[in-house]
């Protein structure tokens, strides 16, 4: 029995010393020290040992158990130490296996940002009809029939009795909201517009715009400039350069056009900005009193401003997309880039 104990102890020591990792060590611990391990089976046999030898054998067995236990613990520490300190070559450049995930359309991404910016400024989002009446698209905006400014907004006509059109501008939402709501309000109306244009790289007959307008008791031109400045800096970064120019839309007075230093060439001139170094980006103005009056708003008390953001244009500027048709083509080679 004594010899058997020694043999098992020696065998255990050899195996433990040779263990190469923690799990092998754990297994050896179970083999020797576990409930059904070799040491325990010896303990069970202890009762068969003659009484006079039993005490000595017991001491030997206990010593063996302690030795094995200590060795396991020491070996464990050693293995952890060497695992921690060991340096082996491992290829970190090997390509991973990507989890499958789809892609947001860039119009969604940019629109989400635009909405967040305006939510911070207290605007509510409105969504209105694309199949519109001439009244809201033009007349309520101080653009009577036969007005030459209609030339820049060539219109699709719906073949129906009511003589609907497809809206050419999200500004059509001004009259709709103003008619049904008393000021003050701050409105952001994103959406699709249609203009009769032959399709080419820089013209699409469907495009996305975001209309914004504010009506309150004391709205100033400086508020409009400040809003445009805030929004474009949020969208394009605080180092954008802006400049404002006068323009004319029948539904604003004074009228404002916003030019942004071309984000693509940095102002040197490129095909995006037609070599001017500046990109026309956000037409705006103080709402014309005729528009407010038409909607039944008292212009002695209330005034406001309005602006439009070319969403398709912002997407194109941000991602340097040259062909407008890119955005509406369901080609994964395009969509998976975003």
């Amino acid at each position: 029995m004594q010899e058997e104990i020694i043999n098992i102890k020696n065998e255990a020591m050899a195996q433990i010393m040779g263990a190469s990792d923690v799990s092998e060590l754990e297994q050896l611990k179970i083999n020797y020290l576990g409930r059904n391990g070799k040491i325990n089976s010896l303990i069970k046999k202890l009762k068969d040992v003659p009484v006079d030898e039993r005490k000595q054998v017991g001491i030997t067995l206990n010593l063996a158990k302690q030795t094995i236990n200590k060795l396991v613990n020491d070996k464990h520490q050693e293995l952890i130490k060497s695992l921690t300190e060991k340096r082996e070559w491992f290829d970190l450049t090997i390509p991973g296996v990507k989890p499958e995930r789809g892609h947001y359309h860039p119009l969604t991404t940019v629109l989400k940002e635009v909405k967040t910016i305006f939510n911070h400024l207290g605007y509510q989002i409105a969504d209105g009809p694309e199949i519109e009446t001439d009244y809201y698209n033009f007349e309520a905006l101080n653009i009577p029939k036969d007005h030459p400014s209609r030339d820049t907004q060539m219109t699709f006509y719906v073949d129906d009795k009511e003589k609907h059109i497809l809206r050419t501008q999200t500004s059509a939402m001004q009259g709709r909201v103003m008619k049904d709501m008393k000021p003050p309000f701050r409105v952001l109306a994103p959406g699709r517009n249609f203009r009769y244009e032959q399709v080419d790289a820089s013209h699409g007959f469907e495009f996305w715009q975001v209309e914004g307008f504010v009506v309150d008791e004391n709205i100033h031109l400086t508020d409009l400039f400040g809003t445009i400045d805030y929004v474009l800096k949020e969208l394009f970064g605080s180092d954008v350069k802006l400049r404002f120019a006068t323009t004319n839309f029948p539904f604003v007075e004074p009228g404002v056009d916003t030019y942004m230093r071309c984000t693509i060439c940095g102002g040197k001139g490129c095909s995006f900005c037609k070599n001017s170094g500046w990109s026309e980006i956000m037409p705006a103005g103080m709402i014309h009193p005729n528009v407010l009056k038409t909607a039944g708003i008292d212009t002695k008390r209330w005034n406001g401003f309005a602006f439009a953001i070319g969403l398709s244009r912002i997407v194109n500027l941000r991602y340097q997309i040259k062909d407008l048709r890119t955005l509406t083509t369901p080609d994964m080679r395009i969509l998976s880039q975003f």
Partner: peptide, 16 residues
Amino acid sequence: PMTLPTGRITKNKIPY
């Protein structure tokens, strides 16, 4: 100069 509107923000929901 550039400013931001200092008006009221309505709690009513806008049409549309």
